[in-house]
């Protein structure tokens, strides 16, 4: 018997009472001011939310936030401040040394300031390898909770996707919080 079959046989042999799947009824929290709460929670997670003013150019804001940045990666047409298109690279390792990456988020989750990023770049490493990540997000695209979030992703197709809440972090040295363990040290969500 294959391991697969013997494991399944063992499960069947040992399973006693078969419990019902509960009805997932839940009165989940809602937030009165989604945008304000999202920004506040994001700050708590070490990120920064910036609301674009009417008529303000995204590129100006990025330049203002990262005046020192030399290598700016983006495959988005509107990001004219990008110095290269990461999708044109033949090896994802060449992404190393990127100062800022600019990507587009699908929607945000207010309760935890996570942004859903289904892979829309050639190499998903882009989301993690640059020192700073700028996520463009339509500010009308905010859901209250993860429950709501998964109802949205259920109808999406993606090969890889990540809910990202703020920068990479660790507290593995004496519980002291440090940003930029491996991934971005800074995350800015630009709300359009």
């Amino acid at each position: 018997m294959s391991s697969r079959d013997s494991i399944l046989a063992s499960i069947r042999r040992h399973t006693g009472v078969r419990h019902e799947m509960p009805e997932l009824t839940l009165e989940a929290i809602t937030y009165a001011d989604k945008l304000a709460t999202f920004s506040e929670v994001l700050a708590g997670a070490g990120g920064k939310a910036i609301e674009l003013r009417p008529g303000e150019d995204v590129n100006e804001v990025i330049r203002r936030e990262f005046p020192e940045a030399k290598r700016i990666a983006s495959n988005l047409k509107e990001i004219t401040c990008a110095t290269f298109n990461p999708d044109e690279l033949t090896d994802p390792r060449e992404l190393n040394g990127t100062d800022v990456s600019v990507v587009e988020g699908s929607f945000g989750v207010v309760e935890n300031a996570a942004v859903w990023l289904p892979r829309q770049v050639r190499y998903k490493g882009l989301y993690f390898i640059s020192n700073a990540l700028v996520i463009l997000l339509d500010k009308t695209q905010l859901v209250h909770t993860m429950n709501e979030a998964y109802r949205r992703t259920a109808s999406m197709d993606y090969d890889y996707g990540v809910f990202m809440s703020g920068p990479s972090k660790t507290a593995d040295i004496e519980q002291a919080l440090v940003f930029g363990a491996h991934g971005p040290i800074q995350v800015v969500v630009l709300l359009k």
Partner: peptide
């Protein structure tokens, strides 16, 4: 996925007191 939503709301809040981990990564294909 609907059931998953219940767990991703509990995991980091319980474990480290964060609303969620920085990365909740879905590997499909």
């Amino acid at each position: 996925l609907e059931a998953l939503g219940v767990f991703t709301r509990l995991l980091a809040r319980s474990g480290t007191g964060q609303p969620v981990t920085s990365y909740t990564s879905h590997y499909r294909r």
